[in-house]
Design a protein around this nucleic acid. Structure first.
Lengths: 343, 343
DNA sequence: ACGGTTTCCGAAACCGTTTTTGGAGATGGA
DNA sequence: TCCATCTCCAAAAACGGTTTCGGAAACCGT
């Protein structure tokens, strides 16, 4: 076990003081070029690696972004492909600015606090900022966190705090675009199966559906809106019921691609062909969307863009940028493939 | 900006020394019960949060596991659903033991080192262990890392080091099971489209295919093995070529579900029906496997299990467990659904 | 030769913990 | 009563950096 090479060691070997070494390495002005050069060469020879802990202790900055993302059995979020991709976007963006990501996982942290004690965990690790993904916005602990002193960004959840920003897709506009697309194809009996209705994206997509139905002068029918939960199975069930109606819809707007896939499945089981007898449009444009049968017409969310926007928000707020919006919404794009056609 | 409450503050307020506070909070023996009680109450009243950095500085442990996972354009790994799920399993498992996950992202870390300087980054943050996911096992920096003093676990990549362990599915057995299944259904002309052939899982699955073909006494045909890259598009192309053969196969083993989906697509485009005219079996059992049309027969990898096994390996090695295997392989399970049938 | 600036660097305080060492007082045994 | 043993705690030394403060040389102009 060779000894760790510290800044003191560098000082000793190069015959200067530790303060000087620190200033040399960090590019301060007041150190003679040749001294700096000597120190830096020595550092790289000895493979000197600064200790983040020591630095963070004195500077009170960590260059780390904390990420809260539930993964329990009840919250299979890391399973949901959507969140990964935004995590990827976030990672890329903040990485470029020199930050790493701390994925909170510990269920019995040192301080002896509960699994939901977000603020405490964030403080414990001295993170410079936090990203909240797929949390319950009504959780008291979440509220405490965003009310605190740490810059936060919330993805797909409505939340407010003095230093927090929320980013999400323009779900309402997207949903409206979906039904307009269907309408243009000639559909008049357009149903929807919604996402979880206690989530912001869930209600916004429903709202967009309603608004568009109304704007197009179509009759709004209660039995045409069915409630799901963003996952395939719920859509499959609801679609089956829709198909069994006296006057079944000729098109369905599913609030997520996973649900669109469930809907296609239900259609197949009921012997109705997609898109000939039933058009289906999804939401998200997950990676598999082009590969399912038939390829999905859907609203593309810019997942990497969401992550990147979140990253932007964080680095800006960490840098102290005073005037930031409290909400940032990204456009979605209709991509039409094979799951929709004229009735 | 209220002041951070430190251990010194607790000491002052409760009239004891900082050492005593530390021992009280950490559950050491030599402190009178009533003193401990008083201190702990005070701590929770003041919402005391220990500073991880300070602790890590002196104990040389961080309770953090570093995760290296490439996410560049060329390495869309975070996009590949498979890796997420094992990440989820890892997170759960190590979380239970009190660890958090540090997802390395920084492209210009403080030490001034390159993006691939894995060992340096790990040391910089003083992680207790590292998980390597989807990296290039031939990368020199990766090799340096696993040769170092930090416990490592590699997922789906062949690697060796004094304190490193690799975990992966039993790809060879799985592939063999796939062709046996096809054989039992009555197929004799069985093709495969492989994964990236420079990856361990890629070659193992091909090896399993070959072994089974041979063991079953089937003729091995060169034109029946086509090379792909784990993604849908490659499988689609290769399958199209397979279907255009003079004597096309009646069944295909695709080395990944994404590829199976690509194959189904190609079949649809060629007007051949699955499974009536062509059976297809995938590998992975991704979340969408049951929802595609037809539902995929596939080899289920226990992704959460892989993550958990990786976590086990890390916590054991961190705890100093001396006798650990250098390779751990997990069984895969054949799950038959709708994409295979008798020819 | 001398006061005033610069330039470069050393000394030391500090960040918030853990852990070792040792000592005061209480307790026990003889 | 006296020495040995416990029990509980205080003091202080780490851990590895950053940053402030000030001073010694070197430089300048006069």
């Amino acid at each position: 076990m060779e000894e760790r090479v510290t800044i003191r060691e560098l000082a000793r070997r190069s015959g200067v003081s530790v303060g000087t070494v620190s200033r040399a390495l960090n590019g301060y002005a007041d150190v003679r070029p040749e001294t700096r050069e000597r120190i830096m060469r020595l550092a790289s020879e000895l493979d000197y690696t600064p200790a983040a802990a020591a630095r963070s202790l004195v500077t009170q900055r960590s260059h780390v972004i904390g990420v809260f993302m539930e993964t329990g059995e009840g919250h299979p979020d890391l399973q949901h492909p959507f969140f990964h991709e935004v995590l990827g976007g976030l990672k890329q963006r903040v990485g470029r600015e020199g930050f790493d990501l701390l994925l909170f996982a510990s269920e019995r942290p040192g301080g002896g606090y509960g699994p939901h004690d977000y603020l405490k965990r964030a403080r414990h690790h001295n993170v410079d900022g936090c990203a909240l993904i797929g949390l319950d916005p009504d959780d008291d602990e979440v509220r405490r966190l965003v009310r605190g002193e740490i810059p936060c960004v919330a993805i797909d959840m409505q939340l407010e705090g003095p230093r927090t920003e929320v980013v999400m897709s323009d779900n309402e506009a997207g949903a409206a675009a979906a039904v307009r697309h269907l309408h243009e194809l000639g559909h008049r009996r357009i149903a929807t199966v919604t996402g979880m209705i206690d989530s912001r994206p869930g209600v916004d997509r429903l709202r967009g559906y309603r608004a568009a139905i109304q704007a197009l002068g179509l009759a709004y029918r209660d039995e045409y809106v069915r409630y799901g939960d963003f996952y395939a199975e719920s859509a499959r069930e609801q679609t089956a019921q829709l198909l069994a109606l006296d006057e079944p819809p000729t098109a369905i707007f599913a609030a997520a691609d996973m649900m669109a896939i469930g809907a296609i499945r239900a259609a197949a089981e009921a012997g109705v062909r997609v898109p000939e007898q039933l058009s289906i449009v999804g939401f998200d444009d997950i990676q598999l969307a082009p590969h399912v049968n038939p390829p999905l017409t859907t609203l593309r969310q810019d997942k990497l863009g969401l992550g990147a926007a979140a990253g932007d928000a964080l680095v800006a707020r960490i840098a102290g940028d005073p005037d930031r919006p409290s909400l940032r919404t990204l456009p979605v794009e209709l991509v039409v493939r094979g799951s929709t056609a004229a009735p």
